[in-house]
Amino acid sequence: MKKLLIPFCLLALLLCGMSGAAMAAYPDKPLSMVVTYPPGGATDFQARIVTTMSSDEKFFGQPIVVINKPGAGGRVGWNWFAEKAANDGYWLSTYNAPHFIAQSLVFKDSKFTVDSFEPIATWGADPAVLIVPKDSPFKTLKDLIDFAKANPGKVTVNGAGLYVGHHIAMLQLAKAAGIKLTYVPEQGGTPAMQSVMGGKVMAGFNNLADAYRNRETVNILAIADLQRHPFIEDVPTFMEQGVEVDNSSVNYRGIFLPKGTDAAVIAKCEKAFLDMFNDKKVKELMVQSGSPMHVLDRKQTAELFTKVKKNLEELLKDIKE
């Protein structure tokens, strides 16, 4: 036995060395990134913008190919990614918080939880804003709250779907102001915007990016974040107006990897993505398309997930009743 020990140790060292060398060669073929929404949507084109530069040697030296796997608000793609994606470092996925966390809590047969993934970085934060049609009788947030107090349940507020940021924002607003609102889930951000524009609902929560682009036809009453946003300087936050709505409903977008991916790979990805997100050209393209950026690294992203999960568990308890 002893005679074999030394060669065995040498072999083991050699193998470690080789894998170290292999890691240095990562990536040696294109990477695949799963986007869990249809092509043309906000997450899709933002993902394409932030990864356009990845072939540059400074970042990955290999292109990142976007693979759309839409369905069930993102759940189809995340189910697949948690179960079937290889954790060799060549498969990445975009994430949308609070969407995936809310879904993992609400849908018991989801194949993923917050812990099924290794967060890498975040590129964007799209806060929810409260919008009303241009000719609405509600000129400020207070008007809406007063009307809702006088007519409980009569105010219709829409959003891009169930258990997405907009829904969370509505729940927080209702709880904080002590009013009863009726939520109308739509088929996505653009149909929701359309309904508000056409006056089919009295108000709605939508993405800052879309509301900003349509500011001619809708009025923005408040922003659900901790501070005002440079795109819309004169819109106050909920908190400024005395309503306790924080930034739990902000739609964060970023990248994660399957659980069990090698630590060296994770580190390399984190560095490359942070560099890409902070690149001048990427920032320019994002601003050009009206998409707000907010870069977080791995540790911050993981903390974000924990915080959002805690908030959601509390808020969603209220829905169940």
């Binding site: 043309g40 084109f45 653009t190 149909p191 393209l285 398309s289 009206g290």
Partner: peptide
């Protein structure tokens, strides 16, 4: 900015980019 068909939705992404 509201697409009238699924193909128009893809075109919207193209415009925004």
């Amino acid at each position: 900015g509201i697409p009238g068909s699924p193909t128009a939705a893809v075109l919207l992404g193209g415009l925004l980019i």
